[in-house]
Every structure is written in structure tokens, then in C-alpha cells.
């Protein structure tokens, strides 16, 4: 549990009486799981700076490059990687920017400044999404149990990014690494769906020995209308 729980990076003093701020990602309670060696491994990639950038690349692409130090993807479904900074193509005027958390604030400030004259939108979504890393030589097969995307190397080359449905949740899939033995995907999924997807992914890996991950689904439900009765 402590793995993904940590204090904020800046050394801010909490107001009197509050316990020190503590962060927790949606999968903080999930340890990474693995099947037979090399087959399939799931792990959360917590705490990265993530931003949605809405921008017409034809008008602001140049300014963005100067401000961010990396290009916008030249074509749909592509990503651009520069060191630890990554840009995903999400749509013709929509991009996901990934930066190390420590750089996030300065990065955002720089981008905002560089794009000041241009119609754009830069939104912090660091906590909106989390990323599940899916790696191993069965990664493609496991994901194909959840998505209609064609993940065969011929259809989904390294660097490819695609938005699709994974089981019943929308997400963005990125193939970071592609050699057959070391295929490494990252699946960006909304906070509220992360645990669901984690469990379904683990279920997909059962045949290679990934341990079952049971969703905490023992909540008490009350769905019928009972509010009207006065005791």
C-alpha cells in the first residue's frame, strides 16, 4: 500500500493541525502481478505529470516545439518521445503530454507562455488518468481479450497510440516497446475505471499464471425506493 503513497514533492508546510498531505493513486493497493516468467506482467505507473493539450498543430505546432522541446506527432496514432517527455496523438487537435512529475509545473508554465498568443487549452490531467503497464510476450494476446484493436505488430507498431474500449472502459493504449519478448504497453485509463480494468486484465492473464485479482465488490446496495417510509 505504501508503494504508491507518498508525500508531495514540494516541501510545503501543512496548515496547523492537518496531517501531512498524502497521495494515493487509484491502484495504490494493488501490487504488480506477473504470470510465468516473461509472459505477462501488470504494474501501475503512478505519478507522472499528464496534460491534455488542445491546439491546432498547423498554427501552434512550432510554438509548442520551442516551448516544450519536443514535436507534436506528425501523423495520427503516433507518439513523440524525447527523453522522459512524451506526446501522444489523441485527435487532430488533441494531445496527451507526459512529463516527469518534478518538471510538470515548470513544463506547464513554459507551454502556457510559449502558446500565449495562440488559441489553445492546456489542462492538468495528472490525476484524471493513471497508467497500467502491460508487458511481456503475451501482452498483445492478453489485451486482445479486451479490445477490438488489431495489436498484431503489423497493425500496431512501436510508438503507436490508440484510443479504444478495453473491456467496458475507454482508454488510450501506447506501445512503448515492441520486440516480441519485451512488448511493453501502457494503458491510460480514468481514475474511476482503473481498478475494474486492472482486474479484467489480470483475468485475461490467468492462462499464463497471473494471479486472480478480485474487485472489491462486496458493497451493500440499496436500489429500491425506501426513503418514503416514516418509521
Amino acid at each position: 500500500m505504501a508503494e504508491n503513497a507518498k508525500k508531495p514533492s514540494e516541501g510545503l508546510e501543512p496548515s496547523e493541525g492537518l496531517t501531512p498531505p498524502e497521495r494515493r493513486t487509484p491502484l495504490a493497493l494493488r501490487q504488480s502481478v506477473e504470470g510465468a516468467p516473461g509472459t505477462l506482467r501488470l504494474a501501475e505507473t503512478p505519478f507522472a505529470g499528464k496534460f491534455i493539450l488542445r491546439l491546432d498543430p498547423a498554427r501552434g505546432g512550432e510554438a509548442f516545439r520551442e516551448a516544450a522541446g519536443l514535436d507534436l506527432p506528425a501523423a495520427p496514432l503516433m507518439s513523440v518521445v524525447n527523453g522522459e517527455r512524451v506526446v501522444f496523438w489523441l485527435g487532430p487537435d488533441e494531445f496527451l503530454l507526459l512529463v516527469p512529475e518534478a518538471e510538470a509545473a515548470a513544463f506547464a508554465e513554459g507551454v502556457e507562455k510559449g502558446l500565449a498568443g495562440e488559441h489553445h487549452q492546456l489542462v492538468d490531467v495528472s490525476d484524471y488518468y493513471t497508467a497500467i503497464e502491460i508487458s511481456g510476450r503475451k501482452a498483445r494476446e492478453a489485451l486482445m481479450k479486451l479490445t477490438t484493436l488489431d495489436l498484431h505488430p503489423r497493425g500496431f507498431p512501436v510508438g503507436c497510440v490508440a484510443g479504444s474500449n478495453f473491456a467496458r472502459a475507454q482508454g488510450w493504449l501506447w506501445l512503448e516497446h515492441g520486440e516480441e519478448e519485451t512488448a511493453r504497453f501502457r494503458l491510460y485509463v480514468r481514475w474511476s475505471m482503473a481498478d475494474y480494468l486492472w482486474c479484467v486484465l489480470a483475468d485475461a492473464g490467468r492462462e499464463w499464471g497471473v494471479p486472480e485479482q478480485i474487485p472489491a465488490a462486496d458493497e451493500t446496495f440499496l436500489t429500491e425506493s425506501v426513503h418514503s417510509k416514516k418509521a
Binding site: P76, L90, G91, P92, G163
Partner: peptide, 8 residues
């Protein structure tokens, strides 16, 4: 609309 993808 490509709702699960590019939203266009």
C-alpha cells in the same frame, strides 16, 4: 463520432 478514439 469516434467516441472511444479521437472524439471527432
Amino acid at each position: 463520432v469516434h467516441s472511444a478514439g479521437c472524439r471527432r
